Computed example of a mutant assay.
Amino acid sequence: MASGARAQYENIWRGLLAPLLAEARTWSLRDFHSPNLLWLPEREGARRIGLLDFQDCVLGPPAYDVVSLLQDARVDVPDDLELKLLGHYARARKQAQPEFDMAAFACAYALMGAQRSSKILGIFARLDKRDGKPNYLAHIPRVKNYLRKNLGHPVMADLKNWFDAAMPQIFANEDQEAAT
């Protein structure tokens, strides 16, 4: 195993993502969240929902866009609503694909949620420091909360341990607030 915190982080992610990337992929918009959805009342059914910002669409794990929507970096999504919508998604998938494995999907959801949250934290910090856009910092507590929640899944134990050892300050404020 490579040494250094960065190499450890990369190795942990390689191990986590390898099985997921070997599974079936679907189109992933990668920026699928409420500000990129349009309500088109003149249309019927699912056609009432319009999409913006899909130019970076790639093939990826089905869980990625689901977590993008249900763990929106810019809008609070209450835990109970997230679970309700996740349950609705799982029922629809199971109806369409009887072999759908919700436990495997929950694992993929936690993985994609942690990956996305980690990425967004870096992007928002860069937008502040490099691009002089501090307004993104307002969303960091929400994204850190998503990261913490996703790290609670058992499959994420090694990554959670990495964050605890290499970046204990990332959750320091939340830990102090929870203790009071």
Rank of each mutant, 00 (worst) to 15 (best):
A5V: 13
Q8T: 12
E10Y: 06
N11W: 10
W13Q: 00
P19A: 10
P19M: 09
R25W: 03
T26Q: 11
L29E: 14
N36Y: 11
L37F: 12
L37R: 15
L38P: 08
P41W: 05
G45L: 12
A46I: 04
R47Y: 09
I49L: 13
L51S: 04
L51F: 03
D53F: 03
F54G: 15
F54E: 01
V58M: 05
L59R: 02
D72V: 10
D72N: 01
D76K: 09
D79L: 13
D80T: 03
E82M: 01
E82H: 00
R93T: 02
K94T: 13
E99K: 13
D101H: 11
A103L: 14
F105H: 09
A106T: 06
A108Q: 10
A114W: 04
Q115G: 14
R116H: 05
L121A: 04
L121F: 01
F124V: 12
A125I: 07
R126S: 08
D128T: 15
K129I: 12
H139K: 08
H139Y: 09
P141V: 07
V143K: 10
V143C: 08
L147E: 06
L147N: 06
R148Q: 09
N150C: 15
N150V: 05
L151P: 09
M156I: 04
D158V: 01
L159S: 01
L159P: 06
D164G: 06
D164Y: 05
D164T: 13
A165H: 03
A165Q: 04
M167Q: 14
Q169S: 15
N173I: 03
Q176K: 13
A178F: 00
